[in-house]
Computed example of a mutant assay.
Amino acid sequence: MSALRIGTRGSALALAQAGTVAKALDGELVVIASEGDTSTASLASLGGTGVFAKALRDALLAGEVDAVVHSYKDLPTAPEPGLAIAAVPKRADARDALCSRKVEGARDGLTLETLPEGARVGTGSPRRRAQLAAKRPDLELVDIRGNVDTRLGRLTETGERGLDAVVLAAAGLERLGRIDAATELLDLDAWPTAPAQGALAVETRRGDERLAKRIAHKTSRLAADAERGVLARLEAGCAAPIGARAFVEDGMLFLTARVYRPDGGAQLTSSHAAYLEDTTAAEISTRVADELLASGAADLAPLGGDR
């Protein structure tokens, strides 16, 4: 039997992520270029989260590969006709990481609390911008794009391109062997991250889900789907500053979601928990999202975007 052909984007992070899946499934990687990898435009202007998935999905539907690997947070929440999420492997660290410029004479880098007033902090995420503005309104927030190395490289630059800190996903840093660049890992209770951050999704053609069954991690899938369910119910796209955290403990599923005003000046939070035998990811995410909507989330943040 020939090796499973696993499609992936060509970035260093995508290759590292897909490489772990290929190793677990005894597969071989097939690199597929996407517009999101080649364009320098903002994610929102390119069409949102789905820009990274389209080329992979086209190749999968065309039979050029047998499965594709996505960062689950990059997938639109609406199902893709003919395709299925066959497996979510065990989730990596869902936290955000602050990576700050090295300070002479300091053994450790600066944290969010100790960054100087007016420090320049880079991020391309509306959620992170809102969270940073809420926590430290004195910071100068800089919109950035690029891969992990490009973003970290701006910490050593001077002038207009120089930054004092960037905020990145801890999971991506770990997968690239760059977690040592993090000077602070931000607590999920105070700093919820993008729905499904840290989780991978292995997608196949519908009916071929068995190809990835052996790497499926039930509780990781449950938590990620609960978080993404909030996005789906809110009809929120990549421009909506929304953070979510779900986890399973003592037979219960816990879910918290937070909607921010884009400038960080206000926020709404909803939390629910239920025993696993009494709920599904869809049910608990509906309760959380409906509570947010009833509290005025649609007036706070741009909802009704791409899903």
Rank of each mutant, 00 (worst) to 15 (best):
Ile85Tyr: 04
Leu25His: 07
Ala55Gly: 10
Ser42Pro: 13
Leu300Gln: 04
Leu188Ile: 14
Ala78Glu: 15
Gly264Ser: 00
Asp74Ala: 14
Thr114Ala: 14
Val167Gln: 03
Ala282Gln: 14
Ala224Asp: 09
Leu29Val: 11
Gln197Gly: 01
Val142Gln: 09
Ala14Lys: 00
Arg206Glu: 14
Ala246Gln: 04
Glu80Gln: 15
Ala170Gly: 00
Arg307Pro: 03
Arg205Glu: 08
Arg221Asn: 01
Gly153Cys: 02
Gln131Ser: 05
Ala246Val: 07
Asp180Trp: 04
Lys90Pro: 00
Lys213Gly: 10
Val202Trp: 08
Asp93Glu: 07
Glu117Asn: 05
Arg145Tyr: 06
Leu222Thr: 13
Leu43Arg: 15
Gly50Ile: 10
Arg245Tyr: 11
Gly63Pro: 08
Arg5Glu: 02
Leu13Val: 03
Asp299Trp: 04
Glu157Lys: 15
Leu168Gln: 05
Ala294Asp: 15
Leu292Asn: 07
Leu163Tyr: 11
Ala282Met: 02
Arg307Ser: 12
Val21Glu: 00
Trp191Val: 05
Leu268Val: 11
Arg287Thr: 08
Gly237Trp: 08
Pro81Phe: 12
Arg261Leu: 06
Ile144Gln: 02
Ala133Asp: 00
Val259Arg: 02
Leu112Gln: 01
Asp58Leu: 09
Glu160Val: 14
Val142Lys: 01
Val121Gly: 01
Arg107Glu: 15
Ala196Ser: 12
Arg210Gly: 12
Val69Asp: 05
Ala92Lys: 12
Leu188Thr: 14
Gly50Leu: 07
Ala33Arg: 13
Arg161Ala: 14
Leu173Ile: 12
Pro195Trp: 08
Leu234Pro: 10
Asp208Leu: 07
Thr77Cys: 10
Ala169Leu: 09
Leu188Pro: 11
Arg151Thr: 01
Gly109Thr: 07
Arg129Val: 12
Leu173Val: 12
Asp96Tyr: 13
Ala190Arg: 14
Ser45His: 09
Leu200Val: 03
Val148His: 02
Ile284Met: 05
Val51Asp: 05
Gly265Asn: 04
Asp225Ala: 12
Leu46Glu: 07
